[in-house]
Amino acid sequence: MSAGFLTVAAGGPPARSPLAEGSHRGAELEERDGWMVVASYGDAEGESRARREAVGWADLSHLPKAELSGAGTWIGSPAEGLATPRGDGWSCPLTPRRALLVGDTGAPPEGATLDLTSSLGAISIVGPEARETIARFCALDTRAAVMPPFGFRPGSIARTPGYLLRAGEEAFLLIFGAAYGAYMWEVVADAGSRLGGRPVGAAALTPALPAPRQEVTTDA
């Protein structure tokens, strides 16, 4: 018997984001890899514009997340504060013996993994006002000189323990305890909407969150 009950099972009822109380409001949903995912909030163009010109935020809680523990090359060194691209995801070092895997990394060559997809919520924050939005609820230093793209920081996010991953110049991923999902969505929406932003669906988001394998480019 393993801890299989931790994992969202294929073939079961569609999985629901821990942010759904907030993020599914007014959303057009579609099923993707067993999860109900926000396709758009009915205005893909406006959403695109918001994240290009101000800031957009999207519920990405369905991104696979796992803890990798033990030894191994995938864990890397936490001292540099950088995530390492692995497959279509990142390996984010926490300690010399533990890392957080985010996205479709594929199976690590060594070490033991534990699925944390359901344990952690995720919000992507994208756009020229992304840093300012994050500064409204998070004290981590996100200046590019300190935290360049691929920078990874465990830290306090809106007074709860979480992680911040910089996917690109203007693209960040907040990762936090799933039980705080509704709260976190409210906090991000409050901060972002004051800066001219809006929630966005997957359609408006995709070009902004560079897959790690691609070249990281500055957002227009």
Binding site: E21, Y180, A182
Partner: peptide
């Protein structure tokens, strides 16, 4: 500060 309380909610809360 902002009027948000860091509340944990169960997945069945709704």
């Amino acid at each position: 500060g902002r009027p948000f309380e860091a509340a944990k909610r169960s997945p069945v809360h709704a």
